[in-house]
Design a protein around this nucleic acid. Structure first.
Length: 886
RNA sequence: GGGCGGAUAGCUCAGUUGGGAGAGCACCGGCCUUACAAGCCGGGGGUCACAGGUUCAAGCCCUGUUCCGCCUACCA
């Protein structure tokens, strides 16, 4: 029999198993299989990404589900892959090029894209290997990339499909522009940050007369593009001015004063400067009032020729200069400190500039409606349910989705404009001529699609759509999507819309939304805060299993995960505990031969029956937890059972059985139960801790295949035995009470003492007598006498448990005064409980209205407590007497 | 402005047909007991944020208050 090394060293075994599982093809989803299916698509990490805590949590949970289902006989497909992450990747590669003194503009588009591919081949996708390290049981043979040819084909099909349904349009709209990335961003890609700044009050003189209007603004440079001043129609202050004009300072342009409900009378001066080409609201006012749209900045955020004297100035320098100019002219009425939200590019943090621009949009309402229904009807279940409300809130107020990006890395928009007639041709295959006039001078749109456009197709594009593949037939819709709430709108909602539109069915049945991983203080982990814990470092230090288990144990639904290293080391200890229990077991397997024992003839001891009963209860509870995404419950159940029931009690209880060389049958039975229980534990634990369970499993004498493909334990209700649990429970209580007395009385463990049990029930006496060895061994007592005849014990410490009185003669050791205090403390506790129960029992309403079983329970408890109190009282009296005697 | 979540032991948090207040860590005391000191045994510690209400019974359901997070929004 192989004996385990002392102490578990994860680093020695993890890689071995990772490659073993893959080489055996255990994670491969077979389309020819007739088994029921379970499928998950991974939220594809950015190809530039490296494993962070969010990934670790996300993929640990997915892996637990995948392994759980696989062991339950499902044909599991966990589809892995990466996302091309347009802006992020382009930025990374640009930085990379900059080190070589290159930039994309000098390279040109084609060369640059080749560089990105090159970069991807060299450095991209390292996260895949990191996921393997974590133990993720993805079907790696199916790894996909959003820019793969097949997936790009799907993107084009979808674009063309939507275009022909008039759900994609192109137009001039105000969009969020990042002057650094030089691209449009969707509303979701803008991060707003509260920023300290100033609110400037600018004086605009009326064209006629000496009066003027004062407008308040945080972005004075935009005044160069003002084409109106707006006031609220109900604002008496400005009643007479509507329809008149002011002269825009610097530009010397006459612009109208208009009325619009949008204007808030109470803010600033109640008069708003209107810059339709550089502000979302002003844009809409511009449309309503048919104003001019004057762009004053270029794509780099510099002032352009429409900015008059400020041409070529950076927008922030211009702001400064404009203010100086107003100051000089005496037309800056005042400035006041003001904090307001400023939008930043989510990728590079540059302040975004709302700009008028020609972009592609998806008309989203028609797609959103069925997506709302899918959740409303329960076709898709969002877990925890509380997120449904957030989903509906957003979906009901959804705005058209700007899908074009002015970058190079991504899916280029499959639209060609004719030089001749200007018509647009949209096509899956590259066209050679204009669809309207057949001219061959056509040029493809230079924009690429928002990365989330291709992500939205992920659940079916990865399975071969638009072809009708077996994968789609078998695995779509997927069983569950596991993701963080931060991409609920970016990704989840859009997948639902696209899935319904193109597959005619939802992309997944369940959406499990987990929380964010934060640091101990509850702060989001970020490089700038320096509070990042690197999962790879953690895996090296504590092992992937301990790490995974920690994440699962902390992943309570709807609550953030606050991660600390202490916690991880705690679960590392747990892994070690399992290791050592297994080590102990293997050290005592000598002579084990399962053939010696015939299943149905095995004579189990009480503690065997007890652990088997407990185990079978546990199996049901863990199954239920995992089926309901209660990862933390599952983890805690396992922890509790393995450590505090199996190790602390069962293994300790049976040690003497193993040392029995004479009673071969007893020894063999124990070996058998130990192996059975440990094996089951390992299976139950495997989805959480795949490596250590596989390692130990491989060393057990009664196992053949990999645990990865072993059947997940199922409970046998016939083995759950309440009577056995009660009886063992009583013995454990007795042991606990004796240990407690020893502890309180400072009796060293090495000191063996005598013990006496008294109880009136003769049958119980017999049973206790029969199981006396348990008490002797675990409570460190040398003699145990059980009797239904009450004797008088001098100088004995006492305890009462479930009608059984315990007497420990501790002559010379016991301090009567201390013992009296100990008993009194005990009695006080009982008094408190009794008080509460009596209050209930003396309440007639309670007796009349509460369910009978509850009342009965309380009565029973009351009787027990009274009896215990009486016995403790006697003990106290005795101690008092002894003190007087002494 | 709107929405969501949280407040339970020193710390981090579990706790759903409403009936037992719990875990891990930390702390205190005792142990190298032949699997494990990354361990074993024992112990102390809580007005379940506050105020009301429903109920025989509330950490849990309802109302309000305070404080803290997060999401979202078009007050320049």
């Amino acid at each position: 029999m192989e004996v385990l090394e002392k102490g578990y060293e994860p680093a020695k075994v993890e890689d071995k198993w990772s490659s073993y599982w893959i080489s055996k093809g255990y994670f491969h989803a077979d389309v020819e299989s007739s088994k029921k299916t379970f499928s998950i698509v991974i939220p594809p990490p950015n190809v530039t990404g490296s494993l962070h805590m969010g990934h670790a949590l996300n993929n640990t949970l997915q892996d637990i589900l995948a392994r759980f289902r696989r062991m339950n006989g499902f044909n599991v497909l966990w589809m892995p892959g990466t996302d091309h992450a347009g802006i992020a990747t382009q930025n990374v590669v640009e930085r990379h090029l900059a080190q070589k003194g290159l930039n994309r503009h000098t390279l040109g588009r084609e060369k640059f894209i080749e560089e990105v591919w090159q970069w991807r081949r060299e450095f991209g996708g390292i996260i895949i290997g990191q996921l393997e390290k974590l133990g993720a049981s993805c079907d790696w043979s199916r790894e996909r990339f959003t820019m793969d040819e097949e997936l790009s084909r799907a993107v084009r099909e979808v674009f063309v499909g939507l275009y022909h349904k008039d759900l994609i349009y192109r137009g001039d709209y105000i969009i969020n522009w990042c002057p650094r990335c030089q691209t449009a961003l969707s509303d979701l890609e803008v991060d707003y940050e509260e920023t300290e700044g100033y609110l400037y009050y600018l004086i605009y003189p009326l064209s006629r007369g000496k009066k003027s209007v004062v407008v308040a603004t945080t972005r004075p440079e935009t005044m160069l593009g003002d084409t109106a001043v707006a006031v609220n129609p109900n604002d008496d202050r400005y009643k007479g001015l509507i329809g008149k004009t002011v002269v825009l300072p610097i530009m010397e342009r006459e612009i109208p004063i208009i009325e619009d409900e949008y204007v808030d009378k109470s803010f600033g001066t109640g008069a708003v400067k209107v810059t339709p080409a550089h502000d979302v609201n002003d844009f809409e006012m511009g449309l309503r009032h048919d104003l001019k749209f004057i762009k004053i900045m270029d794509e780099k955020g510099r002032m352009d020729e429409n900015a008059g004297p400020y041409k070529n100035l950076d927008r922030f320098k211009c702001r400064k200069d404009i203010i100086e100019e107003f100051q000089k002219e005496g037309t800056l009425k005042k400035k006041e400190r003001y904090s307001y939200n400023v939008g930043h590019c989510y990728r590079c943090k540059t302040i975004i500039e709302p700009t008028l621009s020609k972009q592609w949009f998806i008309k989203i309402k028609p797609l959103a409606e069925p997506a709302i229904d899918a959740v409303k009807s329960g076709k898709i279940r969002i877990i925890p349910e509380s997120w449904e409300k957030t989903y509906f809130e957003w979906m009901n107020n959804i705005k058209d989705w700007c899908i074009s990006r002015q970058i190079w890395w991504g899916h280029r928009i499959p639209a060609w404009q004719c030089d001749e007639c200007g018509e647009i041709t949209v096509s899956v295959e590259n066209p050679t001529q204009c669809s309207a006039c057949q001219n061959t001078n056509i040029r493809q749109d230079t924009d690429v699609l928002d990365t989330w456009f291709s992500s939205a197709l992920w659940p079916f594009s990865t399975m071969g759509w638009p072809q009708k593949t077996k994968e789609l037939e078998l695995f779509y819709p997927t069983s569950v999507l596991v993701t963080g709430f931060d991409i609920l709108f970016f990704w989840v909602a859009r997948m639902i819309m696209m899935g319904l539109e193109f597959m005619g069915d939802v992309p997944f049945q369940d959406v499990y939304i987990h929380a964010l991983v934060r640091d101990m203080e509850g702060q989001k982990m970020s490089k700038s805060k320096g509070n990042v814990i690197n999962p790879l470092v953690i895996i090296d230090k504590y092992g992937a299993d301990a790490f995974r288990f920690t994440l699962a144990a902390l992943a309570a639904q709807g609550r953030d995960v606050k991660l600390s290293e202490e916690r991880i080391s705690g679960y590392r200890n747990f892994a070690n505990k399992i290791w050592n229990a297994s080590r102990f077991l293997l050290m005592n397997m000598e002579g084990y031969d399962e053939k010696v024992l015939e299943r149905d003839k095995i004579k189990y001891t009480l503690c065997d029956r007890w652990i088997i009963s407990r185990l079978n209860k546990m199996i049901d509870q863990i199954r239920e937890a995992l089926e309901n995404y209660k990862f933390n419950e599952g983890a805690h159940l396992l922890y509790q059972f393995i450590w505090h029931e199996f190790c602390d009690w069962y293994v300790e209880l049976v040690k003497p059985h193993l040392y029995q060389v004479k009673d071969v049958e007893l020894r063999s039975t124990t070996q058998c139960v130990l192996l059975e229980v440990l094996g089951t534990i390992l299976c139950l634990l495997h989805p959480f801790m795949p490596f250590i369970t596989e390692e130990i499993w491989s060393k057990l004498p009664n196992t053949k295949d990999s645990i990865t493909v072993h059947q997940y334990p199922e409970s046998d209700q016939r083995l759950i035995d309440e009577e056995v649990e009660a009886e063992m429970g009583l013995i454990m209580d007795i042991i606990g009470n004796i240990r407690n007395i020893r502890g309180e009385m400072n009796v060293p463990p090495s000191k063996l003492i005598e013990s006496f049990l008294y109880c009136e029930d003769e049958k119980l006496c017999e049973r206790l007598e029969g199981n006396g060895d348990y008490i002797k061994n675990l409570a460190m007592v040398k003699t145990l006498s059980v009797s239904s005849q009450k004797k008088r014990y001098k100088s004995a410490a006492t305890a009462v448990v479930n009608g059984v009185e315990i007497f420990l003669p501790l002559k010379g050791i016991i301090d009567f005064y201390e013992e009296e205090k100990r008993l009194e403390k005990e009695r006080n506790k009982i008094d408190k409980k009794l008080e509460l129960i009596n209050k209930k029992l003396s309440n007639e309403d309670f007796l009349r209205k509460a369910p009978p079983d509850i009342v009965e329970k309380q009565r029973g408890e009351s009787i027990q407590l009274i009896e215990k109190k009486r016995k403790l009282g006697k003990g106290i009296t005795r101690m008092k007497e002894l003190q007087n005697d002494g």
